[in-house]
Amino acid sequence: MTSKTRIPIKLQINGHRHELEVEPRVTLLDALRDHLGLTGTKKGCDQGQCGACTVHIDGQRVLACLTLAAQAEGRAIRSIEGLADGDGTLHAVQAAFLEQDAFQCGYCTPGQIMSAVACIREGHAGSDDEIREYMAGNLCRCGAYPHIVAAVRQAALEIASSTETAS
């Protein structure tokens, strides 16, 4: 096994700057969890198939397990830890997941929530069918899907009405 030297990288995560030294092969997922102690982002398959590791890079939902940490340098990264307001007020999607009981074991939930926030922002939460299609990248082994769809639907409506009153 060739061992390559560690490289210094700077990451912008939830508005904070972090400097770390990692092997080039370290994924953003391992950097978050093992190097920075941000364990809210989950490792399910580590293979791009389950969506448990979903985070936002420059506002887009992506999979942290197939993104190299080094690749994310210079980008704005947001993980589940950065979703609630500074005062602890939950994001509308987080609140809707609680209200709709949209989880059982909870392991897929951070990924579901990060994916749902982006799904709504992309305008892909217009109907239950559309929510199912555009949330298909997030698997739930507990099968909480009907409640997840209900939570996304509720949050999408709330976000739509709050932006209407705001504007």
Binding site: G48, G51, R61, C119
Partner: peptide, 9 residues
């Protein structure tokens, strides 16, 4: 093809 996350990457 794939999923929304994969298509963004």
């Amino acid at each position: 093809a794939a999923s929304a996350q994969l298509r963004n990457m």
